[in-house]
Amino acid sequence: MNTDISQIVITIGSFKLCLQQSILVWLVVCLLVGFVAWLAGRKIEKADPSKAPKGLVYWSEELYNLCLYVIQGNLKETTAHYLPIFGTLMVCMLVSNLTGLVGFQNPTSNISFNATLALMFFLMIQTHGITKAGLKARMKELTEPMWLLTPLNIIGELALPISLTMRLFGNILAGTIISLLIYTLIKSIAPWGYLGLTLTPFIHMYFDVFSGVIQTYIFFTLGTYFLGQQVAQQED
């Protein structure tokens, strides 16, 4: 097995398997979140409803309310149906966005990872749109308000996964690069660099914590908005 800073290459005879560090981090995060969710479920079952929640039960309720806040306005009456998958993905993304604090590559800095999530939204939107009204009605939507705008409507549909992918990738990767440049600058001006290390908590507070939370919110808000156009009842 050969390793470097960005990937792990497992060699078995003539077969080589290349695993990006970001993908391994995501798998570990999913396993940890799954275990914590299972443990929280056990504790919630045993919790006394007459007492105020605390510990893991309290934080589980806060995360539940946070996920509801992000998607409920878009998915409306279908929120309960989609909450398990989007809630899980949001928590996993929030946790993974904090992995930069411990020196690991953030999964959302991998464009392939972001494209996979964006493609999931795109396929869900198109599938539900066809299921809801039929293929003929869905195709007709692309010709509204006039058939001359059909190419623009198609481009608009295809732009969604590209926009979601590049927005998340660009913002997260930019934060990583800026942090690296600042660290390089601090190292190059040693011994004053030791004084500069006092600034690093603030750097990570913005690029790893604040920016990670904001980008997760934007990604799922936009994705569920377009999904809600197909699955939720629209107000007149």
Rank of each mutant, 00 (worst) to 15 (best):
Y82I: 02
I85G: 00
I85L: 07
I85Q: 10
F86I: 06
T88H: 00
M90P: 11
M90K: 10
V91G: 04
C92D: 07
C92S: 04
M93K: 12
L94T: 14
V95W: 01
V95Y: 03
S96D: 13
S96A: 15
S96G: 11
S96T: 12
N97V: 07
L98F: 14
T99E: 02
P107H: 11
F113W: 13
F113E: 06
N114A: 15
N114S: 14
A115M: 14
L117Q: 07
L117D: 00
F121H: 08
F121N: 06
F122E: 04
I125G: 02
I125D: 01
G129F: 11
K132S: 14
A137F: 02
A137Y: 04
E141H: 11
T143Q: 09
P145S: 12
M146D: 10
W147Q: 11
L149C: 03
L152D: 00
I154Q: 04
G156V: 03
G156I: 04
E157W: 05
L158T: 01
A159R: 07
P161Q: 11
S163Q: 02
S163N: 03
L164K: 09
T165G: 11
L168S: 14
G170V: 05
I172W: 05
I172L: 13
A174Q: 13
A174M: 15
I178W: 09
L180T: 12
L181G: 07
L181D: 08
Y183N: 07
T184C: 04
I186K: 00
I189M: 14
I189Q: 07
L195T: 04
I203H: 01
F207E: 10
D208W: 12
V209T: 13
V209E: 07
G212T: 07
